[in-house]
């Protein structure tokens, strides 16, 4: 009896361990290859360069190096034609396989495993904007470290900066132009749909319906700034209070937050087709929204909007336009 108990516990424990490791989600396949295919035109020979990074630190590095590990900006880099040895962060590779040929995904990303990075023997490490100085110092022992803009929404700044680092200003120009073109095209579409001045409400669900805060989710920037859609004053008010994003809106008052167009941001789609979960569909507050009753709620996959890299731009706009189409269908 006793022995059986021990064996049982052991088996249980092994099962749990393998369970922990097995937590991986699958990605869907879709192609957004409208991004201009650019070549990495840098010469092969070593060329040392001293560069002042966004924190004002001077970094000396070989600007023609191919041995790069990027903890941020993977989508920008591959659009430039640069193929880092390994990348991490919330990098989406599915649908962009040709861009990520020969690029490894780092296993450890919280925030990094120095040994794993070292094992690639990089000559340059690109990190995210807000990395703590402690960690930057740690990585500097491996190779020169340059932080990239991660929070900036401005492609001229983001891409121009990367162009400067590698002397690929022409590629940067092409990509900035591309971003501008994509935006113009979407604006024209919005114009064509006749929803230019409509108000848009975006909701998400986590133990109650709430409005996703501006900074964390790129779709806010795209919808309200690039596409120039309007927010309801009451939603603006909600977001002004910094504590609010954690607090759900009362089901009774939810309909006051409904604009002309209602979008649901699916936080847990993780590559699957985004949808409104049943738990929300049966929510009494949600059911009082006019858009819900008329079955015209647009749904977007919020996980697509965690990175602002130019590579994903078309897909991000497409997702939003698709949601708008659903939301304005008669």
């Amino acid at each position: 009896m006793k022995k059986h108990g021990v064996i049982f516990l052991l088996v249980l424990c092994v099962a749990f361990m393998s369970f922990l490791g097995a937590c991986k989600t699958e990605d869907k396949k879709e192609n957004y290859e409208t991004v201009p295919i650019l070549e990495d035109v840098r010469p092969e020979e070593e060329k040392m360069n001293t560069f002042t990074d966004l924190n004002g630190n001077e970094v000396t590095y070989n600007m023609n190096t191919r041995r790069i590990v990027a903890l941020s900006g993977a989508g920008d880099l591959v659009a430039f034609g640069i193929r880092p040895l390994a990348v991490s962060g919330s990098t989406t590779t599915s649908g962009y396989e040709s861009f990520f040929k020969g690029v490894d995904l780092l296993d450890y990303n919280t925030p990094f495993n120095a040994e794993e990075i070292l094992s690639y023997k990089p000559e340059l490490i690109l990190v995210y904007q807000n990395m703590e100085q402690d960690n930057i110092d740690k990585l500097t022992k491996i190779a020169p470290v340059i932080p990239l803009y991660r929070e900036s929404f401005d492609f001229e700044v983001r891409l121009g900066y990367i162009g400067e680092i590698f002397g690929l200003e022409e590629n940067a120009e092409t990509l900035i132009e591309y971003a501008e073109q994509v935006k113009e095209a979407q604006l024209a579409k919005i114009e064509g749909m006749g929803i230019k001045d409509k108000t848009v409400s975006i909701f998400y669900y986590a133990q109650g319906v709430s409005i996703p805060p501006t900074d964390s989710w790129y779709f806010n920037k795209i919808i309200y700034d690039y596409l120039g859609m309007k927010r309801l004053p009451i939603a603006e008010e909600f977001l002004e209070n910094a504590d609010n994003p954690f607090t759900p809106i009362s089901n009774e008052s939810l309909r006051n937050y409904e604009g002309d167009i209602v979008i649901y941001a699916d936080l847990s789609a993780a590559g699957l087709e985004p949808e409104i979960p049943e738990i929300l569909q049966t929510n009494p507050g949600w059911k009082t929204l006019t858009a819900v009753r008329e079955n015209r709620v647009g749904v977007i996959d919020a996980t697509l909007y965690t990175e602002k890299d130019v590579l994903y731009l078309q897909a991000q706009y497409d997702g939003i336009i698709k949601a708008f189409e659903k939301a304005t269908a008669k």
Partner: peptide
């Protein structure tokens, strides 16, 4: 790498 990103304490507990 199977246990990548899992804090050591969790492994000890389990």
């Amino acid at each position: 790498t199977f246990l990548a990103n899992i804090p050591t304490g969790i492994v000890i507990s389990v």
